[in-house]
Design a protein around this nucleic acid. Structure first.
Length: 128
RNA sequence: UGAGCAGGCCGGCCUGUCGCCCGGGGUUUUCCCCCGGGAGGAAAGUCCGGACACCACAGUGCAGCAUAGCGGGUAACGCCCGUCCGCCGUAAGGCGAGGACCAGUGCAACAGAAAGGAUGUACAGUUCGGCUGUAGUGAAAUCAGGUAAACUCUAUGCGGUGAAACGCCAUGUAGGCCGGCAUUUGAAGGUGGCACGCCUGAGCCGGUGGGUAGGCGGAUCGAGCCCGGGAGCAAUCCCCGGCCUAGAUAGAUGACAGGUAACCCGGCCCCGUCCGGGUACAGAAUCCGGCUUAUGGCCUGCUUUUUUU
């Protein structure tokens, strides 16, 4: 199973798509994470593209922002397999960190699981 | 040993699991596998100086800005080294916008009658004129002095923009139609804070209609690093040999677990080869040389001295 990988093709790099997902996408929260997701057409072989953001206002040092983004990325990398198995759609995902302090990895992983689960609920509601 | 001064060095290491970026190789559409490399001393602030790119290989004048003993180093500097002077410190050492107030203008606390078109009080002198002297305040009293991180003057230097530069490819700021103005006696545009000057030069302006998308280069070999020798008080320079050392672009260089060194904090009927917890400041973005600021620790030399033995 190669679902633990997170190659460049699964990174949300397209600026316009990022803006669209952030501003127009559905938003779900599991503090300290906020996820905005938008159904979007993906390149062949890619299910979803994910981007991670930490507000500069709350974390002035680039090292802190980098560390939080890395922790979020690791959590997504570990948990995305479940999402791919339980959903069908293709999405652009933007994760925003809402906390004010440096997080612990296991808490972020737990919240990541919750927030991805809400996409599954969303798909079920749309199908009905 | 205490207190202090100067300089240098390090910025954890090991193992495992899962990952990211670049290069090379295998397989060669993909998928996947192997090997190698992958943040800092400040990468930071963006405060100076350059390289590089475009505008005239950036020219003249004005304005503006910067620098300021003397000598040297350097690609260059507001940096560095040496030295004189001044100030601070017992000292080791540290600090200094340290040119000019015989060009002009301005400013000046307290004291004092008065600090620039002054002349009060007391006493004395007198050519009887606020004319002269003394006392008194002050650094200075018609004798002038201080001050330029006051304007200013002198000398020297500085053109502008800044990798979102710039070049190439792609592109609906295109192509088409209508009207007007121009084609060397020149439309229009470029350049700078301004005026000149210089350059491009056959298109330009208005209307109509039409709503897209970015990618690649620049870009990692350079005033480069290391060892040794030489010149010099030193900064630094020269020579021989060796080395290749991050290149992302919503931005890689990581996450987790377990050991361990050093240091810090806390604990103890037990003060140790103990137990528990923690890991400074901080993330390359075109590249160099500096400065400044943030920060954990180690080492060396020096000063002082009775603070201790």
């Amino acid at each position: 199973m190669d679902s633990m990988r997170f190659p460049k093709s699964e990174k949300l790099t397209h600026k316009a798509l990022w803006e669209a997902a952030f501003l127009e996408g559905k938003t779900v929260k599991a503090y300290p994470l906020r996820l905005s997701f938008l159904p979007a057409e993906m390149p062949p072989g890619v299910r979803c593209q994910a981007g991670f953001a930490v507000p500069k206002r709350k974390f002035r040092n680039a090292t802190d922002r980098n560390r939080i983004k890395r922790i979020m990325r690791e959590a997504y990398r570990k948990e995305k397999g479940r999402l791919f198995n339980n959903t069908k759609g293709q999405y652009a995902l933007v994760f925003l960190y809402l906390g004010k302090e440096l997080p612990e990895s296991r808490i972020v992983e737990k919240r990541m699981r919750e927030v991805l689960g809400k996409i599954e609920s969303y798909e079920e509601a749309v199908e009905d």
